[in-house]
Design a protein around this nucleic acid. Structure first.
Length: 350
DNA sequence: GAGGGTCAAGTCCGT
DNA sequence: ACGGACTTGACCCTC
């Protein structure tokens, strides 16, 4: 087992808190979890309401969601230093980029409220050394071949950057990562073309992640001199059917793209209910699974927990070089259990 | 209170 | 060409 520094090597989770005691009633769990997790609405519902009522709703959601970010970071701050990393969900300010509703957030009282509260939350994160990030969703396609989609995607990306900026991030290269996939048919050139149109803060935060279907690691490596790269080791496994190694030259180039800042990689594993009966001590063999009829579309879906020890051992070989964002359905429960399992292994080995 | 229908946006795969 | 998956629930509404 390799050297392990509690204060440097982080494992985090994404967007949502789950209470550890799952034996509690559904209602009680909801009461506990609800304030910590984001809520949202739909354009359709908002536009069906009188303007006044819709605005009230947006106010309520915005206040609730900003407070939920605060509570989430407060929770992460109670974790050991090696688990102080979390992704903030995108629903903080619902419909922020929708043409009918973006005005709402430009109103001075709303804007001031968001700036003031998010600044304090950024301070809280820095005070407790919580590493934060964001990840715009599937509709943010900066490299689309449709100019309208690119325009909308820039707005959507800059929305995330507004949050980062209000929290006090974006001033230095990669003080916060806001991660997207290449996504569109424009590929790496499409991403490069859009860079001059982004704010300085956006360029400081943008990371590009390799996709599990279309644009893989080789494509994102073309951007190594332009942006920081996020290696998703499971995506690479799905797409290229390869367990990339931590000493691989391609990973070295990923590390270099962060220009001295400690990178983050993404790690997930195929669903446990898809690979029923699979030995948790054996690495899933992609080629074999595909030959026996499993589809990539199914294999890409995230598991509840990090159930495969062999896969975890592989993922954790990256930890000396980068933080690991665990992507799983059971969120903090999966990442915490993974860390605790790893630490027990280290203790046993000493 | 439970259950069913619905939701801004893009892209890919399979038929 | 088109539907469904991905994401992926969460929410509203009706009963």
């Amino acid at each position: 087992m390799t050297y392990f520094d509690q204060t440097i090597h982080r494992v985090g989770f994404a967007c949502k808190y789950m209470h550890p005691d799952r034996t509690l009633s559904k209602k009680l769990l909801e009461d506990i979890e609800r304030p910590i997790n984001g809520r949202t609405t739909t354009v359709k519902w908002l536009s069906s309401q009188p303007k006044r009522r819709a605005e009230e709703r947006l106010w309520e959601l915005t206040k609730s969601n900003i407070n939920s970010v605060r509570l989430l970071i407060k929770y992460v701050a109670t974790l050991p230093p090696n688990q102080r990393m979390v992704r903030i969900g995108s629903e903080v300010m619902p419909v922020y980029t929708h043409p009918d509703w973006s005005y709402f957030y430009q109103q001075p009282d709303v804007k001031t409220y968001c700036e003031r509260t998010l600044a304090a939350i950024g301070d809280l994160a820095r005070e407790h050394d919580v590493r934060v990030s964001m990840h715009p969703g599937q509709f943010c396609v900066l490299a689309s071949d449709n100019p309208d989609t690119v325009n909308n995607s820039i707005d959507e990306f800059e929305y995330h950057i507004d949050i980062a900026r209000m929290m006090g991030y974006g001033q230095k290269f990669m003080d916060m990562k806001v991660n997207v996939h290449i996504g569109g048919r424009g590929g790496p050139d499409g991403i490069r073309a859009v860079l001059p149109r982004l704010s300085t803060e956006a360029r400081n935060c943008l990371t590009i992640e390799n996709d599990e279907m279309s644009w893989g690691l080789d494509a994102s490596l073309e951007l190594a001199n332009d942006v920081a790269l996020v290696l998703d080791i499971h995506h690479h496994l799905i797409r290229d059917e390869e367990y990339i190694q931590a000493n691989d030259d391609r990973f070295k180039r990923v590390i270099d793209s962060w220009r001295g800042v400690r990178p983050t990689i993404h790690y997930s594993v195929s669903r446990e209910d898809l690979l029923v009966g699979h030995d948790p001590n054996v690495l899933p063999d992609m080629k074999q699974l595909l030959e026996s009829g499993y589809k990539k579309a199914k294999l890409r879906a995230h598991s509840d927990m990090m159930w495969n020890h062999a896969s975890n051992d592989w993922a954790l070989t990256f930890l000396p070089y980068s933080d690991i964002m665990v992507e799983s359905k059971f969120k903090n429960l999966a990442s915490t259990k993974l860390v605790e399992h790893y630490e027990r292994q280290i203790k046993a080995a000493v």
